[in-house]
Design a protein around this nucleic acid. Structure first.
Length: 492
DNA sequence: CATGTTCGCGAGTGC
DNA sequence: GCACTCGCGAACAT
């Protein structure tokens, strides 16, 4: 009854989408009556499909071999990887890259002309390509694991929210904003890290830059009643990040104390998160970052992203404006020593702008065309590339502790920059995974060599100011090695 | 590869 | 305001 009405409304909102359903459009590309009949048959059994395909299939080996990619990594000779671009094993039909394989007469050893026959290229699978796909496969999160982790985490979040709403004054208006890689579908390997911002709405604040990198501010409330009054310092009305986070922490602690298998980690200086560790779910402990945040319900001040966030050519001017009209968030985070002082403000009381919500939004909506990655439309490999980069960085960190200061946010930021310079969906076509990944790596190496990686939103902030130049160049060199030798690191 | 599942999420609704 | 349901998309699974 009401269900109908709802459906209607939902549909009518959807103005930009094509009217036809996916199924319809898929069928729309059907060949003819014959085909249509066939497709009915196919539903029952999908064996008989020779007829017209025949000519095309000519060069394929007998159907016996399906695409089993599994044997590959072991069989890939390292030398073969050294010439990734020209190594042309036609991945689809035979999965063995050995040149000795005799199953067919071998192809003429032609070098690929890049642009001439794009058809061919998409058929070709370089050695890299296969390894990368295999690696991505491994990085997938298992359904059961995800399910267990999600229900555990969701329960905890709900508990905390309920507690804050019922038992506190200052945090009673809180809402949750899930962010970070899990919620962006970029998490790899295990669902073992969750980030949830708990946001308090606030209108009308007065920001004063703290330091000169443009990311940190002191926050003064306008006069008037506020449940946050007790966190305000008398003299200047600034809101104490430290005081508020402390209180927040204590409340979360009260509530978490009752939970089995959940522990709270020690406070980390300057860190806006209350980190909870959940054991007993899945093979590894899960860490849940609960981040206190202030939601400021006004458009971003223009100076925030002056010269930054340049997505005009990638996602479009309109999208950019939409984002800038949305609220922004502040989290209790500072750099350096807590008691460092500037203009009468202590570092421990400053806030950093957070753009997690925008990051999430653009990761989910990452195409220059709105339809990118939708069914039946161009699929891209952007996310795949980023996952691979994150994975590689993780592995390199494991093997060399001097890379400890590099983090996945460096990967993500690099990725955003690369998306801006290669901004068309066709630059990222799914079939060109290895090509795209190589580009991304080269970009990353570039940033590392310069020791410069501007925050995507606040370009005055250099995210590589932490790590030493030495470790930057060393990481760059290491990545280059991997890139040029066909990613042996992924074989382990 | 088509089809089925589950989770995340926004919109809508009813209390 | 809030909690709940619904329908859809993304990603995993078969």
């Amino acid at each position: 009854m009401t269900g109908r009405g709802r459906l209607h409304k939902a549909r009518s909102l959807d103005v930009c989408k094509p009217v036809e359903t996916k199924r319809a459009s898929r069928r729309g590309s059907g060949k003819g009556d014959m085909e249509e009949k066939k497709s009915q048959v196919l539903k029952d059994e999908n064996k008989p499909k020779q007829r017209e395909k025949k000519d095309i299939d000519e060069e394929k080996p007998a159907g016996s071999v399906k695409r089993e990619t599994c044997a590959l990594p072991e069989t890939v000779p390292v030398e073969a990887c050294a010439t990734p671009k020209t190594a042309t094993c036609d991945g689809k039909s035979k999965k063995l890259p050995k040149e000795t394989s005799n199953c067919k007469e071998q192809k003429p050893p032609r070098t690929l002309r890049q642009d001439s026959v794009t058809r061919l290229i998409s058929k070709e699978k370089s050695v890299d390509e296969v390894l990368l796909r295999k690696t991505l496969e491994k990085l997938k999160i298992k359904k059961v694991q995800r399910s267990e982790a999600a229900s555990s985490i969701n329960g905890i979040i709900k508990n905390i929210m309920d507690h804050l709403k019922k038992n506190t004054q200052c945090f009673k208006d809180i809402s949750k904003l899930p962010t970070g890689s899990y919620y962006e579908n970029l998490k790899i390997s295990n669902p073992d890290e969750f980030d949830v911002m708990m946001t308090i709405p606030l209108d009308r604040v007065d920001l004063q830059p703290f330091g000169d990198d443009g990311a940190f501010y002191s926050v003064a409330l306008k006069r008037g009643e506020s449940s946050l009054k007790r966190f305000m310092q008398e003299e200047d009305n600034t809101l104490s990040a430290y005081g508020m986070l402390k209180e927040f922490r204590e409340e979360v602690k009260k509530c978490v104390k009752m939970m089995k298998d959940v522990e709270m980690e020690k406070k980390k200086i300057g860190c806006p998160a209350v980190t909870l560790t959940i054991k007993g779910v899945g093979p590894v402990p899960i860490s849940l970052d609960v981040v206190l945040g202030i939601e400021v319900r006004t458009s971003w001040p223009a100076e925030f992203t002056k010269d930054g966030f340049q997505i005009d050519d990638w996602l479009g001017k309109k999208v950019k404006q939409q984002h800038m009209r949305k609220p922004y968030y502040l989290v209790p985070k500072h750099e350096g020593r807590a008691m460092a002082e500037r203009d009468g403000v202590l570092a421990k009381d400053v806030w950093r702008i957070s753009f997690s919500h925008v990051e999430k939004e653009i990761v989910k909506n990452h195409g220059s065309e709105k339809t990118c990655c939708e069914d039946g439309k161009i699929r891209c490999c952007r996310k795949g590339c980023l996952k691979l980069l994150k994975h590689m960085l993780g592995l390199l960190k494991e093997e060399d502790s001097s890379f400890a200061k590099f983090c996945s946010y460096h990967a993500k930021t690099t990725f955003f920059h690369t998306c801006c310079s290669r901004n068309k969906d066709s630059d990222w076509e799914a079939s060109r995974l290895s090509h795209c990944f190589l580009m991304l790596l080269e970009d990353f190496e570039g940033h590392l060599r310069d020791s410069k990686l501007p925050n995507f939103f606040i370009p005055t902030q250099n995210l590589l100011s932490g790590p030493s130049n030495r470790s930057c160049t060393s990481l760059a060199r290491r990545i280059k090695e991997e890139r040029e030798s066909g990613f042996p690191i992924f074989l382990k």
